[in-house]
Write a protein that binds this DNA or RNA. Structure first.
Lengths: 332, 332
DNA sequence: CTAAAAAATGTAATCAATTACATTTTAATT
DNA sequence: AATTAAAATGTAATTGATTACATTTTTTAG
């Protein structure tokens, strides 16, 4: 493999000139530039990134921490990250953490060892209490941690969940079940708050047996729905905090001989691509998944370069998508 | 940030000894090892990977070329890759190519510039005709190119498609539609071959109007299905080359007032997690997605280290999953 | 045409680790 | 105790690009 020295010899110039031809061509006279470019072509020279990264002290790589790459919502976010990263000259390392702290640690440490220039975190645990390097360029996307000044791209989950709950109320539902995610995450807490807000606003009592906890998986949706169906007065509508759980809940409803939406309304969250093709098509909240990624990446770019991002906490818009899985309460 | 020199000073040994303590501890006496380890702890030293990678001439990074990270099958494969990579000391760069050759080029070139030590390719185009660096460690997973000696992890797509077609035939279907992917890929060609094999074996004439081309997206499934429904004698069963297209086809069937499977049987391929939760649940071929990833990664590891992988073309098992979207032909 | 300013180019240090080879220390053998 | 072999440690070169600073060349201004 040709090095910059080979090129400089063939072109009859110094290595500095070759380097400059590549990185600051306007600092080189047109004549030598041509000579050097010819030499580069002749030798098929490509700068060694290992050497360049080492010398410039940056990896031009960022890592994205994701609990599960196979989650269709996260994979769209990552697609957005990758696109913007590419256009900004960064490569994207995949940090599938499977929710394990040790793996988060491993990947977060890559900043300290210069393997990576920054971190985008899709579910938020870092920085840990016990003093992980907090100076690492870090941006949270989708989820966030309250009370820190870590830049984030979020949805107004409170309002979104409130809107969805109000949609169900507007259909005449009073007894509304909820299937949450793990209560540790801010996203879940916010959506729960939105659900409660809507009930309060409409003077509907909050019934704790209507609130069940899932883990954002399809199977947890079936389980939680089944629990709700066993209530003394089962809900006439269920709001699930993501589409997967809603799909699980629909399946369980059908298994129990219930028609969706005639006997029970079921709503989701995220608007994954399969939501539209469920039976019945799912009422849900759509989020601009790719935009979470692109925005997070450009914010991280700012942070890496020492610039305060414009909006430290950016909120992206959502949309209530009404399909056929929700309908009027017919039990009244 | 502490360097190896800081540690060596504090420990009162040479940098070589510090380096050895880390990489070949058995070459260092127990006494000095303890001293060095104490100094490392004291300084909170972490070796700079940029320097190490530069010096050792390897990035400890591999790149995975995937046409679309948001595809649920591919994202499972990637999960497998990531897991094995991690355990082998490799980081995984994400190369979402969106099917664009220029992006494939960009990522493939990372091997030449030492940014990455090897490539796993999930849809196969590289090496291109026009002489990209063929010496790059490369493994194909899921798809492959015939007539090269590039190691690959594959499914026996011919047999799998044949099995599925035979399943439909066994249900009494004779007029069987097919929705393929883009005909350029080996996977598609093989599945087409399997379909034809089954028909021939059962002395059923191959009807070209029964074969339509999709692009593995849901919407292409609806379109292709609609085409098939317009045939003079529409098929009583449709075999779709992936689950997404099957989901699209089911939707189109319902839209046309057809009951699945009573009026028409529809089958998919891949067994993505939503297949089980379709309405009706999808008959499909399940593939060990994660295993494609783990196997491909360990093969790539061999190739990178100059060892011929044991089975240059590894075949993974598949399983015919019969659910409710296929049933007896009632039009006879 | 000359002096000063600006532009272009070159020299060599630098980044932080690894490692071949040299040297010193320790252990083993007689 | 002397000799040899083995183990431990140290010295310094090396990796390939970038870049501060020095030097040379070109341009501009008077």
């Amino acid at each position: 493999m040709a090095t910059i020295r080979d090129v400089s010899k063939i072109a009859g110039v110094s290595v500095a000139t070759v380097s400059r031809t590549l990185s600051k061509p306007d600092k080189v006279s047109a004549k030598t530039r041509k000579i050097v470019e010819a030499a580069i072509k002749k030798t098929n020279y490509k700068p060694d990134m290992l050497a360049r990264n080492f010398r410039t002290r940056k990896s031009s790589t960022i890592v994205v921490l994701v609990p599960d790459i196979a989650n269709p919502f996260f994979s769209r976010v990552i697609r957005g990250i990758e696109q913007t990263a590419q256009s900004l000259g960064y490569a994207v390392l995949l940090g599938d953490t499977q929710g394990l702290r040790t793996r988060e640690y491993t990947y977060a440490n890559m900043v300290r060892t210069s393997q990576t220039d920054g971190i985008i975190q899709l579910d938020c645990h870092i920085p840990f209490e016990d003093g992980i390097d907090t100076s690492a360029p870090l941006v949270n996307a989708c989820d966030c941690i309250r009370g820190t000044d870590i830049p984030s791209v979020e949805l107004d989950n409170v309002t979104a969940a409130q809107k969805m709950t109000e949609h169900l109320i507007s259909l005449g539902h009073i007894n509304i079940g909820l299937i949450t995610g793990p209560l540790s995450s801010t996203v879940t807490k916010d959506r729960l708050k939105g659900y409660k807000n809507a009930l309060k606003k409409n003077a509907i009592a909050i019934n704790d047996t209507n609130i069940t906890v899932g883990d954002y998986s399809i199977s947890s949706g079936t389980l939680a729905a089944n629990d709700l169906f066993k209530n003394k007065t089962p809900p006439s509508a269920i709001f699930c905090m993501n589409d997967e759980m809603a799909i699980g809940a629909i399946q369980q409803a059908k298994k129990n001989g219930l028609n969706v939406p005639n006997d029970i309304s079921i709503a989701g969250f995220d608007d994954i691509s399969f939501a539209e093709f469920c039976d019945p098509p799912l009422t849900t909240i759509s989020q601009p998944a790719e935009e979470f990624g692109t925005k997070a990446m450009s914010m991280l770019y700012d942070v890496i370069n020492g610039n305060e991002p414009e909006n430290k906490n950016t909120y992206l818009p959502f949309e209530l998508i009404i399909r056929d899985s929700t309908g009027p309460n017919k039990r009244i």
